[in-house]
Design a protein around this nucleic acid. Sequence first.
DNA 1: GTGGTCTAGACCACC
DNA 2: GTGGTCTAGACCACT
Lengths: 125, 125, 125, 125
Amino acid sequence: MIKLDYRDNRPIYEQIKEELKKLIISGAMKTEEKIPSVRELAASLAINPNTIQRAYRELEVEGLIYSQRAKGYFVAPMSAAYSEERIKEKIEILKSALMELHYLKVEKEEITKIVCEIYEKGVAK
Amino acid sequence: MIKLDYRDNRPIYEQIKEELKKLIISGAMKTEEKIPSVRELAASLAINPNTIQRAYRELEVEGLIYSQRAKGYFVAPMSAAYSEERIKEKIEILKSALMELHYLKVEKEEITKIVCEIYEKGVAK
Amino acid sequence: MIKLDYRDNRPIYEQIKEELKKLIISGAMKTEEKIPSVRELAASLAINPNTIQRAYRELEVEGLIYSQRAKGYFVAPMSAAYSEERIKEKIEILKSALMELHYLKVEKEEITKIVCEIYEKGVAK
Amino acid sequence: MIKLDYRDNRPIYEQIKEELKKLIISGAMKTEEKIPSVRELAASLAINPNTIQRAYRELEVEGLIYSQRAKGYFVAPMSAAYSEERIKEKIEILKSALMELHYLKVEKEEITKIVCEIYEKGVAK
DNA sequence: GTGGTCTAGACCACC
DNA sequence: GTGGTCTAGACCACT
């Protein structure tokens, strides 16, 4: 379900966050669906529970999942309306970053390169 | 120095912010240089001083300008090192937004369109 | 059912959101009850349907109502347990905001004034 | 500089966060001022460095402090403009929470009690 | 059994 | 020496 790459420079908890985010946002995991428990996922990835805990906590702060004491973590409700809101929001962030990079004289080619990387390989760098 | 477009959907203070940001980040305005006073700019653009005040205040929060009581607003110091840092930061924000938009199934063409708009016309939409 | 105040500074969609929120949370509208359709409410209030749409969409994101394609919007289920939980949550938010305002040296009188306004007139400012 | 209360139900990292937040927001600690290093504070409070690390990290996410690798943590710049923005923002959050609590039929006396507790004892509950 | 917190101790990259 | 990450292991409160 989740693959880790130890050669990757990014910390493990970041990789877990990204993978889960992908599954949730793309709709592969459904609303209110239970996520593997901290210990369970830690065992299956052969990793320390604290690392999973951190990934889960940060996703909770971002509002993608929520926790119920003694029950587990679950995918937070995401209505269709919510998706649209999120897209608009991210587009705004994108535009703002692009404009600033333009002012900072970053070449268009460099931007295009990043866009292609992400849309082809799935991850950048 | 600053041009407003009343047909633009964006609020006036946003347009002013963007224009000033452009001038400061691209280096057209130098460090410690004085910015037109609130009243002065308001008069020359024929708009309400409160609007200018809001634009300036938000730029101050973003750290691009700073105010000195009874003297006016000035361009905040930005070293070359600072520029590089800012580029890296914005690239990270860009990547993060792009990945999420990818998960949300926004087409690559739509992204490319936005990139081109900004790099050709200078503003998006 | 819903009253608008055009002298109010808040945008129309905000006013509609608040009014509906009031009706739903206080229990005046029951669970699963149908809400007036976008066009219907727009006509009865003599305003643009897009404004209603926005208010409804945001209420959907907040989880207070839900939409069924081609059927309309309905009040989302809210158990008594849910109410208690929501109260606790809002109390926490209240405390956190109060403490920060205290640190920021906002006078107690100013706070009390806001509390009274809301509990007497129903709305603040 | 920071006092912990082990009888308090709140986790230690929360208490540290609150204390630092108080010092920073009220202006007792100045912009760009260095904060005790993770290990240093841990030693002086006789507490595990990981606990301090967590408190600092969360304050960094909230934008109150920032970190420089191999240098330490510092108080983030807070202009006067920023303070005003922050007060306005918190007042809005306060109003919104109050209105919802009103709809939920929470008595005014209960609210007043909380306000007094915070403004007199400094902490609630 | 689950999330949540905390400790002790370790290693890394950076300056 | 500093922040940042990770591990191993422990205890608590809750259901």
